[in-house]
Design a binder for these strands. Structure first.
Lengths: 210, 210
DNA sequence: TTCCGCATGTAATCTGTTACATGATTAC
DNA sequence: GTAATCATGTAACAGATTACATGCGGAA
């Protein structure tokens, strides 16, 4: 349920509305660390209030009505207790990587290169964002926030380095397997070829272009 | 639904049983790229069969009965079509990072250092695993698999580099904010102190140690 | 004979998303 | 006046986990 602690963390940084939290997870780049859709935020916020971890004050000062949430002492306590508990090792769940590992179409390496190019653009953009964050005069960047930024920057640089390397290789011809004791890679290639042949002969069984 | 394509990808590498897929996502290190609990695998496998993307052959050769799944031509087609579709930019969802960004307890930096140390051990271990993979004489490592390994290795090295840096800093005294135009960091510190004081005075409202 | 690894499954539940739904305020 | 942004909410659903449940075969 770290979604709750993500919310608690944001509110801890500054008392916030549901909308503030939502935008924090979208724009601020925190979205890279954790993502929540706004549907959940309001639901969780009410639950957190019920648990006595946050309080809600209806704020009407600037015309528009909004609900400002802040942490209660036991909310702070819960947050800090959670922070002291050991962290799970993360699973990456990166679609791009999943596509790469099991890439099946040796005849269409360009599509893979294209994916990498798209990723490169976005990652470069994020890198730029995080590099300017600590000195943009706007954002609040404490010591721990700065450490996080450093992590993200290092990770993005490593990724970009890899993308260059991968694109360069994929623009060349397909390479033989690095290691293939049971000839799985070779066997797979013939299985793919056979499947393609069958698809060509029978029109498209289910979907899309070949 | 990339869970389906993760499964399809594994089966594409070699015809597999549900159990094979499960272990593939646990041991083989693919678990770093994508994770599925075995409960889902069997359910999805039947669904994929219903969709005509995989076929199932009951294999009884080695005494124990097992269901071997393989891709159908339209399964290959679906896999390759999915691979050619653009990949979503991933959200990291790393508990450790979430703990770091919103770390609230300046008086207990050692707990954070401990988290980092644990992460370091595990990441080093994984790094070792991936570095030996391409030459261990056992694993099947094709060109695309090798690219993935290179990605993981670079990423782990970057992470370890960061961990060193972070531990070193956290073993020193708390640092002032890098940038704090609205004094949010300072304000937060006093809010935390106040919450701690209230908790001490009233016993523990909800849970655990302070 | 007992435990571990192989092997498969189901049902309840949880967690979070999507889409729907509303409305005020501000800037153009 | 109208579009964008601020602001909050709900209900249906998708996606996946957990716990429960079973049973064979081989090793010690």
């Amino acid at each position: 349920m770290s979604i709750d602690f993500a919310i608690l963390g944001v509110i801890g940084s500054r008392p916030s509305t549901g909308y503030d939290i939502k935008t924090e997870f979208e724009h601020t780049g925190q979205g890279l660390i954790w993502g929540i859709s706004h549907g959940s935020i309001y639901t969780r916020l009410r639950e957190l209030e019920r648990m006595g971890w946050v309080t809600c004050v209806v704020d009407d000062t600037d015309g528009r009505q909004k609900k400002l949430y802040d942490l209660t002492p036991s909310g702070w306590n819960a947050l800090m207790n959670w922070q002291e508990e050991p962290a799970e090792y993360p699973v990456v769940k990166d679609d791009l990587l999943l596509k790469v590992v099991y890439w099946a179409n040796d005849e269409n390496r360009e599509a893979l290169v294209e994916h990498l190019q798209v990723r490169k653009v976005r990652s470069k953009q994020l890198l730029g964002f995080f590099e300017q964050l600590p000195t943009n005069g706007e954002s609040s960047v404490g010591e721990y926030g700065m450490l996080t930024i450093q992590y993200v920057v290092l990770k993005l640089k490593a990724e970009l380095e890899w993308i260059e390397l991968a694109i360069k290789q994929l623009q060349g011809p397909p390479q033989p397997p690095v290691q293939d004791p049971d000839d799985l890679v070779a066997k797979r290639r013939t299985r793919v070829q056979e499947a393609k042949r069958l698809l060509r002969n029978s029109g498209n069984a289910t979907e899309g272009t070949e």
